[in-house]
Structure formats: structure tokens, C-alpha cells
Computed example of a mutant assay.
Amino acid sequence: RTLAGQGHQVFVEVTPHPVLMGAMNDTLEEVALDSASMPAAVCGTLRRDDGGAQRLLTSLAEAFVSGVAVDWTSVLPSTDPVRLPTYAFQHERYWPRAAAPALGGDAVSLGLGAVGHPLLGAAVELAGGAGLVCTGRLSVRTHPWLADHVVGGAVLLPGTGFVEMVVRAGDQVGCGLLEELTLQAPLVLPADGSGVQVQVVLADVDEDGRRTVEVFSRPDAADAQQGWVQHASGVVAPAEGTAVAEEDFAVWPPRDATVVDVTGIYEAGAGASYGYGPAFQGLRAVWRRGEDLFAEVALPEDVAADAG
């Protein structure tokens, strides 16, 4: 009580194990209540079964956060202090504010439907029942993983990319089954990162509920005379009632299937001008049963974290 009355605020019990800290805390709390002063800090040094240097440093840190001036050079190298970041909510912005987007900068304000797909961004239903057009823009800058699909030295949209776009466009009109797709010309993506405009055109529904589909593209900088290049054509149909051979996946690997050796498949492909980068090296295992092929495919870890 006397020491606290003289203004001492920190009390350290130097013992192998704290014995007096409880009583000291009780006494100092009473003094603080009587004098309306701040409660003092009480620290120890060592503890029973915990009497090493680590415990002493921990106690020293407890005293430090209570306001005791500690000479850390005895235990830390004499280097420049670490500069901690400023408080998270006490910051100023120095970046210029982005201008408000111009009216019509999004699909809805342009009278289009938002598709929300990585390869297709908008869709418009043509008036008079003439069909549906889905549009998108592709480039190795906006879709960097496409740069991992190189054939003959050129970056090509893979065949599965056409399948994905056609199936997504078919979903827009309730035709989620791809019955037929013929690729007619490769879609080359410029290596400089410039974009390619893409259109997936669905015709009006026929009497069987099917629709023909075509895929076109042209460069961003194309003039009116260059026109569109057709890359694929096919047929989509309603997916209701489609039979799925679920028994093939009840047991894995599939029954009565023979393992296909895929060792060195990407090295062999490189020798045939197929330069598949990490994003396209996901084949893990293959089995064959008659005319059917079964495969395990997984994104490599170094690209999986960036996949949507």
C-alpha cells in the first residue's frame, strides 16, 4: 500500500513460482478504488516446472505490454526496429477515383441478358422468333489459361471451349443436350493479348424442339469488309429424358475396363506440335472398354487456386 501510494505502478515478484501475486493484486485493486487511480500491473518471473529462459522472456514481455521500459538489445540483435503498418482504419486514399461508368456500360442497360459465364457475357433473343445470339470476348490477357493451349505454335481455343459455349447457349433456351458439333476452322487467339469477339447463334426451334447452332468470331479491330469466320456448327436439343449410364460411375474404376498407359502423353504431344501448358496437363488416368473411354482429369495445384 505504501509503495502504491508513492506512485509505483509495476510490481514484479522475482521467485521460482508466484506466491504473492494474488495478494498483491487484491491489495492494489483496493488502493485503486480508494484513490480512483489506475490499477497497477503485477508480473512474475518464473513458474513451477517452467523455469527456463523462455518463461523469463515471456514474463518480461508481459511487463513490457504493461508499460515497463525493457532493454531488448540484451536478447535481440541490434538492427533497425521493424516498422509496423499504420492502423488499418486510419488511412488516406491517394488513388484517383474511377469515373462513374457511362450509361449503357453493362449488358442489361444495353438491352441484353447477362449470361454470367467465363466465355460468354451477354445474350439477346432476336425478335420475331428468329433465335438467340450469345456474345463474348476472348483473349490471353483476360483468359490467361488459354495461353497454355498451343498447337503448331499458335494459341487456339480448345475444342472443349466450343462445346462449353454451345452447351451454355443451349441452356439459355432449354436445350442443354448437345447432339452434334462439327468444328470447321480453328479459333486463333492473338499472342499480343488483343481480343476476339465471339458469337454463338442459335436458330429458332424446329418441330422436334431442336435448334441448329453456329459459332463465329472476328478480331476486335476487324473492319466491315473482313466479316465473321464460322468455326463450328451443330444441333442442340432439350435434355429431358436423356439416358445417363449411371452404372458406369457406381464403381470406379469402371467395371470390365482396361487401363490405358498415359505415361509421357504430354511429351509425345509436344513432339507433334501440341504445346500443352500447366492448365491443360490434367489427365491422371484413362480406361478403355470397347468404344468407351473413361478418364480422370484434375487441375494441377499451381493453377487450381486461380480457377473460378
Rank of each mutant, 00 (worst) to 15 (best):
L3C: 08
Q6P: 02
A32Q: 12
D34H: 05
S37C: 08
A41H: 07
V42M: 07
C43N: 07
G44W: 01
R47A: 13
R48S: 05
G52Q: 06
A53P: 10
L57E: 13
A63Y: 00
G67N: 10
D80E: 13
R83A: 12
T86Q: 10
R93H: 08
P101E: 04
D106M: 08
G111K: 04
A122Y: 02
G131V: 00
G131Q: 03
C134P: 06
R137C: 08
S139E: 11
R141Y: 07
H149F: 03
G153M: 11
P158H: 02
G161N: 03
G161Q: 03
F162C: 05
V163G: 02
M165W: 03
V167H: 07
G170V: 01
D171L: 10
E180A: 11
T182R: 15
L183V: 08
L183C: 10
D192L: 02
D192P: 07
R211C: 01
G227D: 11
V229E: 06
V235R: 00
V236C: 08
A237D: 01
A237I: 01
G241Q: 13
W252F: 14
P253Y: 04
P254N: 15
T258N: 10
Y274G: 00
Y274H: 13
A279L: 05
Q281K: 06
G282K: 04
A285M: 11
R288E: 12
R288G: 03
R288C: 05
F294D: 10
A295N: 11
D302T: 06
D306N: 10
A307K: 05
